[in-house]
Design a protein around this nucleic acid. Structure first.
Lengths: 211, 211, 211, 211
DNA sequence: CATGAATGAGGGTTCATTCAT
DNA sequence: AATGAATGAACCCTCATTCAT
């Protein structure tokens, strides 16, 4: 189980001890870069919480405690709880394609890439499960334009996968849907469903398709 | 699109006017049956709300208003908001198999039954999407024993389907997972994903499998 | 020193113990009248607090404690702290003319009515001082249309006084302004300024005016 | 309409660019005078804000922004928000007599001095209105010894005016009270009340008195 | 049985103040 | 001397729950 950030060593870190550390004498110019970096750290640290507890089930106090900062600090970097949540979703959404298609290029041929995709899904299963939960929560908060983001995100992932695996768009979409289906089910039943067994079913579909 | 109860004529009904204080005492002998029926009506009426807004995003006042009763009435039939939610999940869970396998027996042969299953899913898509949402919410409220219920529910549905469609357990599970995957995706993207197109992919898998 | 309501015996009363007390059997119709009465009591009880501490300097908890109710109750009768404050100002504004002109009719002749006016001012000095404070606070909260209310209120009081004392509009206005000036000064210096001495100056003006 | 400081050219100036870190060390010897001057500038710049928004309605951040400095700077020159406010009141109080009696000596005779007084009041109406507001706020912050300051201030102004206009103490007090009454009323009604008309009433009183 | 007024703990958010730079 | 990021107590307000009617 990986931490809040896939690929990063997301050990529970305390973010509470920073300063300006500008360097050159007396200059009171704080580093802008640092601010953005810190923001990203807060985002990464909040993702897991929002996924586990849901937007409404999570308090800002809990977020602050988990991040090792005060509630005021959260409001220094984000305009509110809702803003933080929306940024978390944005942040995760940007990484979805990366998570699914990482190392896909290094595999030779569609079948090998299919295996690589499943390996990616298995490696980042927790992250994907969290993303899935968060997406449903996001829909509640932005029922108006929430779907637009999802459509665009899905389309991007699907088109990349279609290219890499030499599949039609609808087929690649089926692939993503099923992968998420397996992950959702395992999320719901606590892992009772075998990932490999279901992956085997999916490979059978691929074999029947890929001609 | 059906209402809160699949198969029932789920028009938005106001439950508030049963009128225990209608005057003629002695006439309105409160039957036990009535109590249970009323409870069921409250459950059915709450399902949609919990699915749409989430457990934490919904207030008891809102539930009461939607049901056309007072908050006190809810506390008369349930021990609290959480209890109501848990009963809603139970109530929906009990119906899951029914929803998925309705009219399945009348179809002849595995393939026809597969089609009937998909027809069921399409007919009750809203209900299934809500059930899917509620299950993830349920997991948050009962992270301890929440999975047990899900495992049992899934197993029951899977074994029924395995019998009806002449599939191995793992195959039937794949079927359910994929159906839910499609419905979840359509829930997220507002219906942008074509149900039929994805169903066609699933049939391809079935064809490759069912020999 | 009178309480929050001029003329009323405004002893610090605990408002926390009420019910429906409808009377006729089983009817679940709560009394509407009661609701409005209670609202008025809350208003009267809040006036002193807002005057003493200012809108921003007063917490809802303090209001609730002083009224002997919970914070939630305040939100049951008013839409928020700001609404409560605005209603208090409205409530007091409606009474201003009454406070100033009470018993004025019973006096014979302009001079006697002038004396009656000063007697009214002295009798309700605390209430007038509070009203004065609250008006300045009100201006901060509603800098847009706050002045309109003040203009209308002042005009009403002035025209009544002009009639009763047989004064021109500008003269009646001078009278009101000076009375409030004396009260404000006494509010600021803790009563060091003599009310009677200043009233004597005002009477000298009246004598020079009233021809 | 004058700025925060009567008689001073109170254009909204940014105080934030004194540049202690301008580079050439040793050149910018921090004089004590400078420190005090700067303090006075901060005081003058804050007066308007405190009057308009009230002590509790104003944040230190807002004060800092308006002054063009950081919040830290305020804490360098004052021990806190409350201290700053108290110093503002002190600062304004010291100037009250000056504002009211400026150019009074140059006028010949009591009546001419009376006119000069009214001219002063009209010229510094905004400042006086702000002073009036701030005094009521001050009373809230220092209800214990707040009145003492007010009594002393009033007495000083009254005795100066009594001398200059050849009035008895109570008469001079009436004069000040009425001037403030007019200004307060005009503050409340947005200038709807005519200053000159009310001043004419006051002159009538003077005529009846000064014999 | 049904109601909804009342409660008060706890929610999101603000802001006076501190202090490392 | 000046900055502004960080803090956390305390703000206004919400809402699950109780109970007199």
């Amino acid at each position: 189980m990986d931490g809040g950030e896939p690929g990063a060593l997301g050990s529970r870190h305390c973010l509470g001890d920073r300063g300006w550390h500008d360097g050159r004498r007396g200059l009171t110019v704080p580093k802008i870069v640092d601010h953005e970096e810190y923001r990203a750290e807060l985002l990464a640290g909040s993702a897991e919480l929002f996924a586990d507890r849901g937007f409404d089930g999570l308090t800002t106090r809990e977020v602050a405690d988990a991040l090792g900062v005060s509630t005021g600090t959260i409001y220094h970097y984000f305009s509110g709880k809702r803003d933080l949540f929306l940024r978390v979703v944005e942040h995760m959404t940007e990484r979805l394609t990366v998570v699914l298609t990482a190392d896909l290029e290094q595999a030779e041929g569609p079948v090998a890439r299919f295996d690589a995709l499943l390996a990616n899904a298995a490696a980042h299963e927790d992250w994907l499960a969290r993303y899935n939960r968060i997406c449903l929560d996001h829909l509640r908060e932005r029922s108006d334009d929430g779907t637009e983001v999802m459509v665009a995100t899905m389309d991007r992932a699907v088109s990349q996968l279609a290219d890499a695996l030499d599949l039609a768009s609808g087929e690649a979409r089926f692939l993503v849907i099923t992968v998420f289906g397996i992950i959702t089910q395992r999320d719901l039943d606590g892992g009772a469903t075998s990932f490999d067994e279901q992956a085997a079913q999916l490979r059978r579909w691929l074999t029947a398709t890929n001609h």
